[in-house]
């Protein structure tokens, strides 16, 4: 099922937050607990300050750097469902999408969002808004292929079905 919206309080991160900060290579692992415990252990541990339903609002180029999928998994394993950013680094975008996480590109959000204030990500109206402060910013629509992946909860689940129903598109 494709989610229609997410709500939570904004948790602000800056520009160019890289994968070595988000999930340092020391947490390279196949073990779920080890991967999960590495989230934001690279520099200042922001995750420990996040409340359960906070929504990360990042700046430009969020997740730049390594292709290590353990960084993507650390978000999934910690229950993060959606992230808003000015822009995402390309490989990070693909990796988190494959984990079934909604990445919402919303230019201008870093300046608008206020730490701790409630936000609504509305995927039907394609906007991120603050009812509290009375603003709404348009966000980029998700491409069809990505919607299919998210609908199934991630690339693996999507492919399992494709493979079961016969060879895929090629």
């Amino acid at each position: 099922m494709l989610e229609k919206s997410f709500t939570g309080n904004a948790f602000l991160l800056g520009d160019h937050v890289n994968t070595d900060i988000l999930h340092p290579p020391d947490y390279f692992s196949l073990k779920k607990d080890r991967i999960a415990s590495g989230l934001s252990k690279g520099a200042e541990d922001f995750f420990s300050r996040m409340a359960k339903d906070d929504i990360i609002v990042a700046g430009r180029n969020f997740g730049c750097g390594s292709s290590r999928e353990s960084s993507a998994r650390s978000f999934a394993y910690n229950g993060i469902r959606a992230i808003v950013a000015e822009s995402f680094a390309r490989i990070f975008f693909r990796n988190l999408t494959n984990q079934g996480i909604y990445l919402i590109t919303c230019p201008g959000i870093a300046k608008k969002a206020v730490q701790g204030e409630p936000l609504v990500i509305d995927l039907e109206k394609l906007e991120v808004r603050s009812t509290h402060q009375g603003w709404a910013l348009p966000c980029s629509p998700l491409p069809e292929y990505i919607k299919c992946v998210l609908k199934k909860g991630g690339l693996l689940k999507f492919l399992e079905e494709e493979i079961k129903n016969g060879p895929s598109s090629k």
């Binding site: 390594s66 292709s67 999928e69 490989i91 693909r94 494959n98 690339l155």
Partner: peptide, 25 residues
Amino acid sequence: ADSHTCTGGALCAFATGMGSTDIAV
């Protein structure tokens, strides 16, 4: 499955990095 896979572009290949799951597929 490494972000610097783009190195192969020097040889005129379309070379790009992805994550482990994409590469598994």
